[in-house]
Structures are given as structure tokens and as C-alpha cells.
Design a protein around this nucleic acid. Sequence first.
RNA 1: GGGCAUUUAGCUCAGUGGUAGAGCGUUGCAUUCACAUUGCAAAGGUCACUGGUUCAAUCCCAGUAAUGCCCACCA
Length: 747
Amino acid sequence: MKEELAKAYDPKETEGKIYRLWEEGGGFQPRTKNSEQRTYAIHLPPPNITGSLHMGHALNATIADILIRYHRMKGDKTVWFPGTDHAGIATQNVVEKQLKKEGMSRWDLGREKFIEKVWEWKNKYGNIIIEQLKKLGASADWSRLRFTMDENYANWVKKAFIHYYEKGLIYRGKRIVSWCVACQTSLSDLEVEYKEESGKLWFIKYPIVAPTPRGRSDNYVIVATTRPETMLGDVAVAVNPKDKRYKNLIGKKILLPLQNREIPIIADDKIDMIFGTGAVKVTPAHDLLDAEIGERHKLEPIDIIDERGRMTAAAGEKFKGLKVAEAREKVVRELEEAGLLEKIEDYKHNVAICYRSGTVLEPLRSNQWFLRMVDHPQNPKSIRQSADKNQKLGTSLRDAVLNAVKSGKVKIIPENFEKILFSWLENIHDWCISRQIWWGHQLPVWFHEPKCIPKKGHESDVVKCKEMVVAVEKPQCEFCDAEFKQSEDVLDTWFSSALWPFAGLSEADLKDFYPSNVLITARDIINLWVGRMIFSGLEFQKAMPFPEVLIHATILTKEGKRMSKSLGTGIDPLGLIEKYGADATRFGIIWQTMGTQDIHWDEAAVQAGKKFANKLWNIARFSLMKIENSKFKIQKLKLQVKIQNNEDRKILQKLDEVKKIVEKNINSYEFGPALHALYDFIWHDFADKYIELVKDRQDEEADLVLQHALFSILKMLHPFMPFITESIYQKIGLEKKDLLMIESWVD
RNA sequence: GGGCAUUUAGCUCAGUGGUAGAGCGUUGCAUUCACAUUGCAAAGGUCACUGGUUCAAUCCCAGUAAUGCCCACCA
């Protein structure tokens, strides 16, 4: 059927229709086209259900969509796996905020009701971002949509936990963790952020017990601290063993002010002689370094701050129950009154804050679960720098990742981001995987109720009752009637995200599409996510989850600053789609994607994309009109005539060159250059020159070359600008015709 | 404190060991011919700075400066 093309391209009129056409045509599902059975798979980094599309997602999804559409046209059995992440703390915070507006807290509701509320919220808002990705033209297979809390995904999470536990890699212990008083949970190292703060450095006099000669000023040691209130939990004062100033004080005792406790002066080479006074108060319960020192010197920690951020009884009667800030004031005041405050200096330093709530974190000791990262004391630095790529590493999870990257089993693109991974791995601590929030995967850990009622005939076996069982299902005690109760902790969200390349996939998909071909992601989650997916894949699938990791650009503001919602500097991709159309938006993004250089966002590129779309539209309008009026109707897409005319030969040759450039660029993830080449060719070679030349020609060859070039252009441009190319293609009067999206690539 | 990256036209960015390129913007001309969301043309640059290698450096090397990003348990 003939259909007149409008004079200008209208994305609004087109995009919805075309997307439905694709979906109804089953274009997103994988299919086998050639006999080679090559597969191509990408996993969408699952966006948080709390999120809405930002430029980073748009860039990521556009890149993935280009690769997916290209490989699909190439004939590979292609699939793009989409899904969303339950995003533990983030989602819980959103729902808690909502509750707060109603004057409630999660505690008022109770755990069960609260989780119901979160599910309600998820069902209502959790797929917004998926709908937004569709607007962008993402050709993901929505029939394979997953959620990190789906039932079989959850089963994988439990399986993984139990596997690690039985292997001895998961352990429970009372350790210092970063504790968020607002979220009431522990955080992993990677969830801690730092904020510069102008604080104070207090210099406190600690009297030495063994009296030095009277009247001398050295009958106390001065320590400098940013957190005077923690002195209530001091168990020692540490100095560097090489420090001459304190050499003869080592081993002597100090009478801890306000607490009137005797504590030793110890030597530890971790102490920096330059900083402060060179003497450090040691509070092993509330500082990581101090905990390390405390352990080395076998000093018992004293917990003086509790999980609500209040002082405990151990802080002393006067301080018990006070908030940390209040305690600080009071400690300072009392020290001053006692004449033990030497001086106060202004001091700028970084304080650790919660990446979700922004609250200052309290390092404190808490019962948590850890995943062991390192299994032997080998110096990792020497591993990385070693020239011998086959050098044996240990079998720890950390070493598995190191090994994979070092041996090239996984390639990080660009290569220099390997360093980010290496430096994290070199200093890695065991991963605190338990959280005290409610929304997430509850640990498959069961505790025996303390009250034990022995079964008949088992009165003497009661001692054999297990206190704790790690299992998928609730266990039953052999010897008594006491109920097992599931641990209230949930797992760190990233524990489940780490299983993303395989968890929740059907067995058939796992067989066909594991490993996937490339992981596309932003640099800020290289450690948080990529590193953990690598060891999870190796652990549970015995193979790398992906051979390549493409770290794409970060989109910054035009001024080169980070885009931030709170500062209002963020660009909304949906606004761009609304204003210019999805193709123009994709064009604008990719136009600026040169290598992996960060992008200083310039909307002019999107405007250029809109103009280009219109140009293409009119190229098609002219070409189709000419061909329609020609006696030489289109039969096939292939050009099968011998070319006589020189101009024809020239344009076909150029077309072939462009094809090679585009293929080469896509294969090496150079999307910007590919688009620039297409743009130049289409506008300046094809439209400006060839079409002008061909206007007066009436011969068959001209018409055939014109249509061949047009089809080739539509195909090559399709991965970049899918809507308009498909829309034009659908208007071509061919006999047998499929969707352009599954049409075969230019040959 | 450590690491990485960037610096080229008014703006956002490509690029090459041998007279410098695009998009947007600017200026002039053209046009009821597919497209004014157009065509043709023009103006506009000591390629951050200093030194080195070279017959020749915007490009390679070293250093400096500015900017940005990431990592880090200095009290």
C-alpha cells in the first residue's frame, strides 16, 4: 500500500506505534537465524526499583541496545536480559519516608506489615524505570524480566549463602562495623562515603600514674583526638616505638580521666609520630585502627556507644543515655573543669557518612556475618606486579578475581580501570554481608529457641540440640520441641546483585546464554558489583560471567561537574525524548560518546539528532517517491546488477567503506565514531551529492542504486536510531517484508 | 595522602610525526525543485605552558599549571 509521507518526521506520532509493532512481532525474543548458532547476550545492570531513568541509564541502555540490535541483525541468537533490583536500604528508606508522612515508623507497623507495604510500593512504582527504558527504544526481552526478590532468584541467594557457609567462607563474629544510627543497620566498606567537615582537634592531658619528679610538666601525656567522648572507652595510650619523646613511658600506666581507670601506655608502629602529639588514645570498640591495635595487644574493648547512638552504662553513670554529641560536650566541659584540656585546634577532616541517609556513621562492635575474602597472608601487591601471569594465587574469592583479571579471562575496557579493581582487592577486608534492615533476603539461618522442652525419651539428649542451623527450610530439632527462629538480619543487596548473570535464569537460558558477551556498566560500581559478580560466577557456574567489561563514560554537566538531583543539575532523558524524540536523544548521547571519555553534556547534539532524523526522513521521502514513479519497482533488497555509471560506482564504494567503519567501530565499542561516519556519509555524500546527481536520471541503474543505498543506510543506522529507520522501512512497498529490527545486516 | 583522566575554533568535542576537522553558533548568498529542521560559501585556532627527541611535534618523551573524577580506617 502506498502511503504519503508527511513533510517532516514526527517522533511522537511514530514511536509508540513502532514499539508495539516490535513487541507484537516478537522481535525482542532470541531466535536462531543462521546455522552457526552463535549467541549474543547482555544483562541489563538491574536498576533500583526506587530509581527513575537518568542520563547514566540512558547511555548504558543505548549502548547495550546498539550492540543487541546489531548482533540480532547479524543473525546471532540474541537476547538482552532485563530486570530490577530490590535495593534494600534505598527502598526501605523510601517507604519509611512515606510512613513518616503518615506519622508512623516501621516499628509501629512491625516487620511483617512493613514488608507488605514495601511490596505494595514495589508493585506500584517498581517498574516505572522499565517503562522509561521502553520509551528509549530498548529492545530487551521483557518476557524474561527478573526481580532480585523473585522466588527462584531468592532460592539462588539462599543456595549461595549455604554454599559459602558450608565451605567455611561465611562466618559470624562480633566485629567493628560502620553503623548507621538512622538506618539502624551495619554497612559494608563500599557503602561508606566521606564528607569533609570542619571539626576540632582536642588535646587532652592524660595523667601518668607513676609520678615523675614534682613540678615537672611531663607528668601527663597529651593525646589529640577529634572524638573526645570516646575517651570514656579508652583502654590504652599508644605511641610509636621509635618515638624518642615517649620511649621511657612505654609500659607505664595512665589514670584515665573521668573514668578513673588505669590504662597502659603501649608501643605500636602503626602510630604516626608526626600527627598530633604522637600519642594516641586507643578505643578498640569504636575505631577500626584502634580495634586492630587492641587486638594486637590483647586489650579488651569497652562498648560505650550503642546502636541507637547513645552512651551505654559502661560510659559511666554521668554519661549513660546521652547522645554522642551531648556526651562530647559534657566530656569536654568536665575535662576543662579538671584542667585537663591543653588546647583546641580547628581541624578539617573527612567524616564517614551513610551513602543512603547521609548520617554520620558510628563505628561500633556488632554481631555480623562476613564473607571471607582472603585466605592466606601472601602479599597481593607482589602478585599484581609479578611478570609471571601464570603465577599461582590462593583460592580465596579475592584471588579468584585477581587471577581472572590478570590472566585476561576478563578484559576491562578501558584497561586502566583494572587498577581500580586491583587497589580494592589489595586492601580488601572481609565483606560484612548482614544488614539489620527489614527489606531484603533474610538469612537462611535458624536459631534454636533457648527454652528447651525435651521430647520424651530424649531428656538426656537436650545438650545435643544445635544452637544454630544454616538451611533453606526451617529445621526441626531431633531432641526437643523448641522452635527454630529465623535470623532477623537480611543480606546486603550486593550479595544478591552479585548473582545477577545467572540467578533466576531458566536452565535452558543458562545453557544457551551463560556466559554473556559483555557487561556494560558505570565505573562507580566496578568494585561494588563487577568484582563480586566475577567471583560469584566462578564459584557457582565455574566460568567467568562475561569475557569483557565495558566501562562507559560518565555524563557530567556542561561545566564538567557531576550531575546531581539534589543540586538540580541532572538532565532528564525523558524530557529530551518528549522534546526531540527517542532517536534524537539516542543520537545526541552517542554523538558525544567518544571512547570512554567523560561527557560534558551538550543538548545541541540532541538538536542535531532531531535535524538529522528529519533529513533522513526527507531522503527517504524523495527516494521512495522517485522509485515509486520509476518503472523499476523494488523486488529484492539485494543489488544484483553490474554497475556501469561512475557516480553509482563511487557511492557504492563509499557505502562499503562506511559499512566497514561502522562494523569495526561497533566491534571495538567506538559508538560515537561509528555514528559520526554514518552521519557524514548519509548527509554529505548521499544526500548532498548523490541524490542531487541522480535527480535527473531516469535509468534503471540509478533507481536500483538509490534504493540499495537507502536500504543499507536504514539497516546500518537502525541500531542507533531504531524508530525512524523502522518506520521508513515499513513504508517501503516490498512484497515480502519482515521487521527491520530482525532484517539481516548489510551484506 | 594515593591513583586516573582531561587541556585543540565562541561552546561541546574528533584527529594526525609533514598546509588543522565536525556539530552547534556567527556572517554572506541561494531556493516555491525531498527537506528553511535546506543548499552553497565565508569568517574564526601560537592545538595549556616549558624543555627534550626528530630534517620536521598539536601528535612521541620529561616537567609545570589548571580542571575533573575515583580510591584511602591518620587519631
